[in-house]
Design a protein around this nucleic acid. Sequence first.
DNA 1: CTGAAAGCGCTTACAG
DNA 2: CTGAAAGCGCTTACAG
Lengths: 385, 385
Amino acid sequence: MTDRNGRAGPGADTPRPTRSRPARAVDTAAPEQAAAERRPRKLRAMTSRHGSRPTMNDVAAAAGVGLKTVSRVVNGESGVSPAMAARVNAAIAELGFRRNDSARLLRTGRTASIALLLEDIADPFSSALSRAVEDVAAAEGCLLFTGSSGEHPPRERELALAFCARRVDGLVVVPAGDDHSYLLPETASGTPVVFVDRPATGIAADAILSDNAGGAREGVSHLIRHGHRRIGFIGDLPQIHTSAERLRGYREAMAAAGLPVDERWIACGTTDRARVAEAVTRLVGGPEPVTALFTANNRITVAALHRLPRTGGRPALLGFDDLELADLLTPALTVVAQDPAALGTAAASTLFERLAGDRTPPRRIVIPTRLIARGSAESPPPAVR
Amino acid sequence: MTDRNGRAGPGADTPRPTRSRPARAVDTAAPEQAAAERRPRKLRAMTSRHGSRPTMNDVAAAAGVGLKTVSRVVNGESGVSPAMAARVNAAIAELGFRRNDSARLLRTGRTASIALLLEDIADPFSSALSRAVEDVAAAEGCLLFTGSSGEHPPRERELALAFCARRVDGLVVVPAGDDHSYLLPETASGTPVVFVDRPATGIAADAILSDNAGGAREGVSHLIRHGHRRIGFIGDLPQIHTSAERLRGYREAMAAAGLPVDERWIACGTTDRARVAEAVTRLVGGPEPVTALFTANNRITVAALHRLPRTGGRPALLGFDDLELADLLTPALTVVAQDPAALGTAAASTLFERLAGDRTPPRRIVIPTRLIARGSAESPPPAVR
DNA sequence: CTGAAAGCGCTTACAG
DNA sequence: CTGAAAGCGCTTACAG
């Protein structure tokens, strides 16, 4: 996955900005500008220069018309005489006026923006999902805020509440924490929240999920079909919903085939390379090695791929989540692929349906996964070979 | 790269939302709510229920204090008697009040948000850059809008102007178009814009760039050092700044080594697989094949990697941009890596310096690239072998 | 310590 | 066809 440290690289040479909080409101005002602030409105319109922004009032004054007439012209409303419109447009052009949408939206009640809260936008899964959400939002005329929680619950909460404080029209959340009751006041007062990838806890809300158990079941069954009986499972932390579901799929596939599961074959924990490497070595290099490995997410698969060459064995390998270049590895990597774009599309679509007035009970939409056989999981175990 | 089509996958099953534009403002108001809107303020505070949002006025009325006192308590200002504060806090808790930051920011003048305009957030380069920008913004207390232009100039312009209309405090742009003079009024009225990855045209602005020419020069020199004389260059469209710079680096390295360049070795064009495949086949499979290939960006490298096994030759390969799993290919892929996170950090830092009042002339910051030798570019050409 | 008034830049509802 | 008034939910500047 993307390196999340290493950001202190060349860019760190750039001096950090001074942290004067109300930066622009204070510092950018040139002396003349500050003076202009104190002048009456009409004078100020004439003095418009660097740093200022003409308002509808300025345009009205310059054109010698009423504020409402400017509003009509700007918004293309009918019922303005050509002469008036021409004068207003001339003033608009001269002053370089552009409507302040933030002000407009304050009055209107909506903000025409939604927010997407992810684990890490730099992760391929998140970024693919993000693009899909953005596309739906764009079709609805909404702009998109994005924020990364870093899988850190307090940060998720902080960001979510900051978005709500801006009064975004709605929220799409890939939950990091395990208690989302803090969002109850927000949803109660009309801000819809849709959860993706994992369900929320402590709040009844829409959830768009991958078929984690089904996908894992299909993957493990695939290994079994190719003759494997001793199959290792390397997963994420067991308290993570997706992780638990995939383990469930593994167990179900084994049970369905009437195969016993040795609990030592199951290694759940963090996704850091060292932890996964240790698990791989133990499962593959021990005295009673497994003949196949199911790695339950992209980071674990990558870590396992790096470790495997240094273990004695060469087990079949099947990963959850597709990887770029997976087809160019030797052997090419067989995966159970999620569809992050479909998750994002479904989540954003659901959100806009809620915004359009849908009051039906919370839904749970499950997006299917897809087994892509490429070679790494199709070789039989040594004994059968 | 991430599949940008295929979004019609399983998610497409989800019914599309109806496109009623002013959705929430109209539809979500329950009948009681609509009635509440018509009631005088104080009554409304008492009637607060689903869909409404209590305001400071509501809190003031409920607590029986002045509006300003509520403001003081909400913002933690000093000079409020404990008794008053207690009454206000009780009202806040009872009504579930949360300050509307959009309203606050309208009065304040800033929006505490910046926007990032990318080619495609789903691309690993963009998403790594995005995360870095987000981190800097977060440290400055700013939220981040993101938008994808899809390398489509009109869309870039539309998005950029939409962000400016929201009065974002500043803009970070990966330019898609070749004329950014449309941003002149925005920068003139005080919205700073920083360009990343490519410089802007038609406007004097900060630009944060990779050392494209230097990186290409280093990569091609590396190939030359390993005995290659006939080196092919497969690049992006020549009008793209990064593409032209990398080609320049290629030519400079060849010239520095006193090597002639056959113009037929240079294949610039789109990054789609078919076009790259054709170029690879022609360069490698022809009668006078090159012995090494320099692929000038990540998409081209991936396309070439897919094609190469199906050509007769097995040239040395060196790509611009690193790829996940590059080290697990056979042979492992040698690359000139960019540092998208450093680009993002430098861009965002520069933006906040501008916001803090920096009025120095536009800068150009160049982020170094890094050659990572892994094997694919270190084998000598057949003749020397 | 407290709060009424004016204003941020727009739109809504209403009167000419 | 045109515009003055009131208001969106806050903060600023000012008076008690």
